[in-house]
């Protein structure tokens, strides 16, 4: 972990490794490869896709894919905080479904096709997601329970609440005009860039600033790298760790703001397995599961890679529908192997 710490975070490193100046140039080069490797994997995938299908590189297809990747990208940015601090959140998929369900119910209850109805819905969504995140965080830190267990519990609770609210059916926006008012948030664009893409770029940019340029960000990395050292250095462990889950909640809330206008509904299967996709995106992006060294932009690229792999599978004609899952899995593993070998090669 320490050997591969990125340059952005070296300021908090207490210099305990005692590395010699002579080794520095080699180290810096390796660090660059680590940050770059997700982008290289993305480029390789784009080339592969271009060979697979003539429509792959069309603007229409690429904007479709980038827009679809936005939910996982935004959620995975939040997961980058949690994982960098040595935690884990398995509840994000269920949390997303619950947030979407409550948001739609709130908008249906308020009624009217005005922008104000959507604003209320958005506030409710962010509130629900923040509350879920805070709950996860507090139980992990003050309850001193493994995050795996806490968020697995959260996963069950939030999912059951959606099922309960929907009575097993579907929660749908009832006001057709309101749907039309809200629809552009997913389907609209600014100068050709889809709004969800703008949202995830902004979220990632803000996250990068928070992680790399603020004391809070340095605390997150310090806890993830070595909790004991961080504690002795006076880092407020519980507060920082709880906040990472709150940030995760916030990101789920934001993702839902662009998710709901797409289909205008939430079902008990909404957000199923999103937690695994988010974690995979984070890991593909170069952030280690054991904590420390967050790569926000790598995470975003990881989310894009996941969606691109699925896209290539559908566009290609030579993979049977029965084998899609296997080929998808293989591509992800190969991408990771390529990345790792790039990091090792000096």
């Amino acid at each position: 972990m320490h050997e591969t710490r990125s340059h952005e975070t070296t300021s908090i490193e207490p210099g305990t490794k005692g590395e010699t100046p002579a080794r520095r140039p080699a180290r810096r080069r390796r660090i660059d490869m680590r940050a770059l490797s997700p982008f290289i994997a993305l480029a390789v995938l784009l080339v592969l896709g271009a060979f697979t299908s003539p429509v792959f590189l069309s603007v229409e297809n690429l904007t479709n894919v980038a827009t679809r990747a936005s939910f996982i990208a935004i959620i995975a940015v939040g997961a980058t905080f949690v994982i960098a601090a040595g935690g884990l959140d398995l509840s994000v998929g269920s949390m997303a479904a619950l947030t979407a369900g409550v948001m739609i119910l709130a908008m249906n209850a308020v009624g009217g096709a005005d922008v104000s109805t959507i604003a209320i819905g958005m506030a409710v969504a962010l509130g629900v997601a923040l509350a879920c995140g805070l709950f996860n965080g507090l139980v992990v830190t003050f309850g001193r329970i493994e995050p795996f267990i806490v968020t697995l519990g959260g996963m069950g609770i939030y999912r059951a609440l959606v099922v309960f609210l929907a009575a097993g059916g579907t929660i749908t926006m009832t006001d057709w005009d309101l749907r039309e008012t809200y629809r552009p948030i997913y389907f609209g664009d600014v100068l050709g860039v889809p709004i969800p893409v703008i949202v995830f770029l902004v979220v990632a940019a803000v996250a990068a600033v928070v992680l790399y340029k603020t004391p809070f960000g340095r605390h997150v990395v310090a806890i993830g790298s070595n909790e004991d050292v961080a504690r002795f250095s006076g880092v407020p462990i519980r507060r920082v760790r709880t906040l990472t889950y709150v940030i995760q909640g916030l990101c789920v809330g934001i993702a839902i703001l662009v998710y709901v206008p797409r289909l205008g509904s939430a079902t008990p299967t909404t957000g199923l397995l999103w937690e695994l996709q988010a974690i995979t995106a984070v890991v593909i992006g170069g952030t280690a599961l054991k904590g420390g060294t967050p790569f926000v932009w790598g995470t975003v690229v990881g989310a894009l890679i996941l969606e691109l792999v699925a896209n290539i599978m559908v566009l290609s004609d030579f993979v049977s529908e029965y084998l899609v899952g296997a080929v998808q899995g293989a591509i992800i593993i190969i991408a990771m192997l390529v990345q790792r070998s790039l990091q090792r090669g000096r």
Binding site: S53, V55, S58, E60, N61, N64, R68, R262, L263, S265, T267, T269, T270, L272, A310, N311, V314, L315, E321, V324
Partner: peptide, 22 residues
């Protein structure tokens, strides 16, 4: 063409977008 979409609305949206491109 034929693909699995898991009886799921979001997956169906994704697969159909790709069918339409293809």
């Amino acid at each position: 063409d034929s693909q699995y979409a898991n009886w799921n609305r979001d997956d169906a949206f994704r697969v159909m977008q790709d069918f339409l491109s293809k």
